[in-house]
C-alpha cells in the first residue's frame, strides 16, 4: 500500500526515500525553488522551497516525506516570504536583467515573475564582483551568482572535475574555480560539461549562444516557471 502526505489539502503519494519536493514534483505540484534540481543531490540553501509541515517550516527539497505530514505550500504567507527571499537575492548581487544574455531563460527571473515581484524592495548592495572571461567557451559573471552550488555539485558529482567551490563566508561568500591563477580558463571545464549547463541564472554562460532565441520569445516570456517545471516541456 502506498504512503501519502497531504499538500494543501491534496493527497500526494510518496515512496520511501523521497523528499517532500520529490513527491510534489511527481504529483505535478509546484513548490518554488532555485537551488534544487532533481538531477542533483538536494542542497537546501535558497530556502524558497520552504513549506510548513505540521506547523514547522522546513526546506521541502531536503525534508524526507513521511506519513502524517500535513504540508502547506501555496499559501499567501509562504509566498510573501519566498518573495522576500527572491528580493534578497536580487539586491545582494548585480542582477541587471536588460544587460543579461540569460534574461527570459533565467530561473531567478522566472520565480520572481511567478511571485509577482514588482521591485527588489530592499536597498541594493551593488557589490564589486569579478567577471571572468578567460575561458574560450564559457563566461563566468559572478555578479549573477546566487550560491546555489549547482555548478559545484555538477562538476563534482557528474563531471568528476571539481572545477567550482565557494570561499569566504556570510555576505562575502564567493564562487571560486579550481586553478592557482583563479581563472576559469586555467581549469579543465569544457562547454559540454554538465557544470556549464546547470546555472539557474546567467552567472555561467556558454559563449556565442546568448541570443539564439530573441528576447521576448524566451521560456519565461511565454510560460510561468510553474508550468515549465511541472508540465511536459522541462528545460
Amino acid at each position: 500500500m502506498s504512503k501519502n502526505i497531504i499538500i494543501d489539502g491534496l493527497t500526494v503519494p510518496f515512496q520511501e526515500g523521497q523528499t517532500i519536493m520529490d513527491a510534489a514534483m511527481a504529483a505535478g505540484l509546484y513548490i518554488p525553488h532555485l537551488c534544487h534540481n532533481p538531477e542533483f543531490k538536494p542542497h537546501g540553501s535558497c530556502k524558497l522551497c520552504t513549506v510548513n509541515v505540521n506547523g514547522r517550516n522546513v526546506a521541502s527539497c531536503t525534508m524526507p516525506a513521511a506519513e502524517g505530514q500535513q504540508v502547506l505550500n501555496d499559501i499567501a504567507e509562504l509566498n510573501a516570504e519566498r518573495l522576500a527571499l527572491t528580493q534578497m537575492l536580487f539586491v545582494e548581487g548585480n542582477h541587471l536583467c536588460p544587460a543579461c544574455e540569460k534574461s527570459g531563460n533565467c530561473n531567478l527571473q522566472g520565480v520572481a515573475y511567478y511571485l509577482g515581484m514588482m521591485s527588489p524592495h530592499y536597498n541594493h548592495f551593488y557589490p564589486a564582483r569579478e567577471v571572468d572571461a578567460s575561458h574560450p567557451d564559457i563566461l563566468l559573471d559572478r555578479n549573477r551568482c546566487i550560491y546555489c552550488e549547482l555548478c559545484v555539485r555538477a562538476s563534482r558529482d557528474v563531471d568528476g572535475k571539481n572545477v567550482f567551490g565557494l570561499t569566504d563566508r556570510g555576505i562575502m561568500t564567493r564562487l571560486i574555480v579550481n586553478a592557482t591563477s583563479g581563472l576559469l580558463g586555467d581549469t579543465s571545464l569544457a562547454a559540454t560539461d554538465k557544470a556549464a549547463q546547470v546555472c539557474p541564472t546567467g552567472a555561467l554562460l556558454v559563449k556565442r549562444k546568448g541570443f539564439a532565441v530573441p528576447i521576448g520569445s524566451r521560456i519565461f516570456d511565454r510560460h510561468t516557471i510553474k508550468d515549465v517545471q511541472t508540465g511536459g516541456s522541462h528545460e
Partner: peptide
C-alpha cells in the same frame, strides 16, 4: 551575527546584512 553568518542560506546571508 552579520560577521558570523556562514552564508549558506539566503535569509541569513542577506538578512543579517540587511
Amino acid at each position: 551575527f552579520a560577521h558570523e553568518s556562514c552564508g549558506f542560506c539566503t535569509p541569513c546571508r542577506v538578512g543579517t546584512e540587511l
